[in-house]
Amino acid sequence: MADKADRREFLKKSVLMGLGPLALASLAGCGGKDSAVAAPADGKRRKLRAAMGNGGLQSTWCTLGKTTAELWGELLDVEVTWFDGAFNLEKQRSEMERLANQDWDFVAVQAQQIDALEPAVRKLKRRNIPVISMDTHLVALDRMREVGVWLQIEPDQEYMGRTSTKYLMDKIGGRGKVIHIGGASGHSGGQGRRAGFEKILSEYPDVEVVGGGVRWCDWEKEKARATFAALLNQTQEKIAGAFFHNDDMAIASVEALKGSRHEGMVITAVDGQKEGLTAVIDGRIHATTVNPACLIHMNTLVIGQFIARNGEKVEDLPLRVVTPGPLVSLETGNAEAMLYMADPSRCLV
C-alpha cells in the first residue's frame, strides 16, 4: 500500500514537472501487481476507450495534439476516438452532447470557451466517466470538481508571454519601439500572453508599443501580416522588435520586413513547435517559448489511463497540472533538441 502511495506521489510530482514520459517508463520498470502500466496476470491488458478533442484541427497546435493522442494512445493501449471542435463552439458542444451518451474510460477536451460544455460534462459525471480539461478551463477552477472535471492540464500562458517578452527586451537593450500582435482577445491564451507581455513591459519605461498596445488578429496569419505591415509604416523611426502570440503569425509577418527600414528587428513568439523551431534555427525569428501541445495531450492520456486502470479516485488527483515549456533561441542552445522532441513522429514536447 505504501509502495503504491509512493509511486502515486512520484507520478504526481513527475507530471507536475512535465516528466510524464519518464514517470511512465519508470513505472513500467517497477512491476508489481498493482502497477499502472504492467500487464495483468493473464498477460492481456484491457484496451481502454477514450474520447479526446480540442479546439480545431485547422490549427497546428491542435493537429499536433491529435497526432500525439493517437501515437501515445497506441503505445498505452488506449483507443482514442477524436472529436474535432472545428473552432466552432456550437459544434464542440454538440459533439460533447453525443459523447455524453456513450461509454468511455475517460474523456478529455480542450474547451473553446469556459462554461460552454458544462451541461454535457455534468451528464458524464452522472455516468461516472472522468473528464480531463486541457488548456482552456472548462469551468472556473473552483467549480471543476462539482461540475465533473477531475483535472485541469494546461500551459502557463502568462509565463510564455513573459519569457518571450523578457528575451525581446534584453535583446533590444530595454529601449525603443516594439510591436505587439495578439491572438484572439476572448481566448485565455491571448489574454494570458498579453498579461505576460505587459507585465514585463511595465519594467521597461523606455519601451513604447507602436499603435498604443496589442493588436488582436484572431490567430489569423493574413490578418497578422496586414496589421504588422500597417504598423511598420506608422513610424519613420526604426522599430526595435515585435512580439507575436504565436509562431504562425510571426513567420507569416516577417516577410513584410524584407527591404524595409525595419529589417533586422528582433522577433519573438510563442508555441515552439516544428515550424517555429525551424524558424529560430534558420534565423527568421529570434526566439519562441514552447507551448507544449504534445506534453499536454500526452500527460492527459497517461493520467487518464492511470485513473482507469488503477481505479484512482478524483480526490487522489491534483486539481491543476501546469506543463512547462522552455524558451528556445540560438543562445539557449536547445533548438535542435526541441526540434527532435517536437517531431510529430515522437510528440514529446
Binding site: F87, L89, E90, R93, Q112, D115, A184
Partner: peptide, 17 residues
C-alpha cells in the same frame, strides 16, 4: 437561445449560423 445553450455570450459564437 444559443447564448443560453452555450451558457455565455461572446463574439466568437454563431460562426456557421
Amino acid at each position: 437561445m444559443n447564448a443560453g445553450w452555450i451558457n455565455s455570450a461572446g463574439i466568437n459564437q454563431n460562426l456557421n449560423l
